[in-house]
Amino acid sequence: SLRGFLALLWLSSRKVVPAAMQLCYENINGSCIKTSYSPALRVILYLAFGSGVVLAVLVNLLVMISILHFKQLHSPANFLIASLACADFLVGATVMPFSMVRSVESFHSCFDMSFCYSSIFHLCFISIDRYIAVTDPLVYPTKFTLSVSGICISFSWLLTITFSFSLLYTGVNDDGLEELVSALTCVGGCQIAVNQTWVLIDFLLFFIPTLVMVILYCKIFLVAKQQAREIESMNKTESSSENYQARVSKRERKAAKTLGIAVIAFLISWFPYFIESIIDAFLGFIVPTHIFEILIWFTYYNSAVNPLIYAFFYPWFRRAIKLIVTGKVFRGHSSTIDLFSEQIKVLD
């Protein structure tokens, strides 16, 4: 790692190179130091990281299949969730496996920024969707349409991909750090050095959507509390339209509560990592490598958490998973199954 190579430079300047120190490429000058683990610890790390990879890939794949296959789930809000699951699936399929090798064997991979930021913006747009649904449930279908959902999905992907690739390929992230990057650059490592300006921009890309989510969910729960009191005060003589509005409000509040839990899990996973990034940029990359690895894997595991939250709170999602796992989705007319009914019938 970069920090390990800095230690090697310090030792070399004093002509002290431990015999037990291993390099990623022993026959190449300028090789990074290889972090060595015992065979038992290496197996444990691979099992821990590998389980996260499998979990993130499988559960997000189930979310995508459920929403795309069952017509009853074709709604603007669910398409946002499916797109979020796609971002988390790509984290599990393309980022986590390489990061697992990087963490255990000390090789590095640096292309996870786009998918991770995409997850953040998807959660932000989902919070906006839930706010509209809870505060005005009857008008909500006319406000948050499929075209609006498509715009949100496109923005979440295009902005993050454009930003990430522009940042890394122009090299502006290490402006002013040329001497440090030159001193720390080693063969076998590609941990990205980000200067103070761009680490603050990175933080803002995290902080602004997060602030929007927190504000909206605080408002959602205040509105939900007020609606709950209004529903309790309703008497049996109310019209059917008022009863319908009460049912709709209850359903939207439950969805908002579920996604609010997902936002809390997101904050727990991501906030420590961004704090570490700021500390590193302003204090000269002093955070130990193992702390960095722990925090980055906290963010990766968040990609596997959201589908588990859906499975715990949504009966329709558990029914969809059962149909997928048992292969009943391949039977005739399975896409029209009523997932909201406790009794599911699949036509042959």
Rank of each mutant, 00 (worst) to 15 (best):
E242C: 11
C152L: 07
Y310N: 06
S303R: 03
C218D: 09
I268F: 15
F285T: 02
S36F: 03
V16W: 06
R318C: 06
Y25D: 12
S233Q: 15
D88Q: 15
L41R: 06
D348V: 01
V95M: 11
A19V: 13
C218M: 13
S182K: 13
F98C: 05
T170Y: 12
L204N: 01
I291F: 07
F317V: 02
T336P: 00
E252P: 01
R319C: 08
V16K: 10
I132E: 04
G171T: 09
G30I: 12
A224M: 05
I208F: 15
Q227Y: 05
E232R: 04
R318A: 11
C152F: 13
L259N: 10
S341Y: 08
L9D: 01
I337Y: 04
A304C: 11
F274W: 14
F144D: 00
E276T: 03
I261S: 02
M100Q: 09
S239Q: 08
V91S: 03
I294Y: 12
V187M: 02
A40F: 06
L222M: 10
I321Q: 09
F313M: 08
S182D: 15
P307A: 13
V59Y: 12
V199T: 15
Y314M: 15
W157P: 05
G50K: 00
I120W: 01
F144S: 00
L267Q: 14
V91M: 11
A183P: 00
V134L: 07
R229A: 14
L184Y: 09
S166N: 09
I215R: 09
T185D: 14
P307W: 10
F340Q: 09
R14N: 13
V43T: 14
Y244D: 11
E105G: 00
L159I: 14
T145W: 12
F340D: 14
F155C: 03
S334F: 03
S166G: 06
F285P: 00
E276Y: 04
G332V: 08
G50V: 02
P39S: 06
F285E: 09
V199S: 14
P97V: 09
I296F: 08
L90H: 01
D338L: 10
Y300A: 09
I67T: 07
M213E: 15
F312D: 02
D348M: 04
S1V: 02
E276W: 02
I324A: 07
S164L: 13
G189K: 05
T299N: 11
L73I: 03
N302L: 14
S127C: 14
L308V: 10
Q196A: 14
Y310H: 12
A246Q: 04
S99W: 15
L61H: 07
T197D: 07
T210P: 07
Y46D: 03
F89K: 03
S114M: 10
S118N: 13
L283R: 07
R251C: 09
I279Y: 10
R247C: 11
V305K: 00
T258R: 10
H69A: 05
L23P: 02
Q72A: 08
K236E: 14
L73K: 02
F121Q: 01
F163V: 06
F206Y: 15
I294H: 06
P315T: 04
R229W: 03
I231Y: 04
I28T: 06
Y131N: 06
L6F: 08
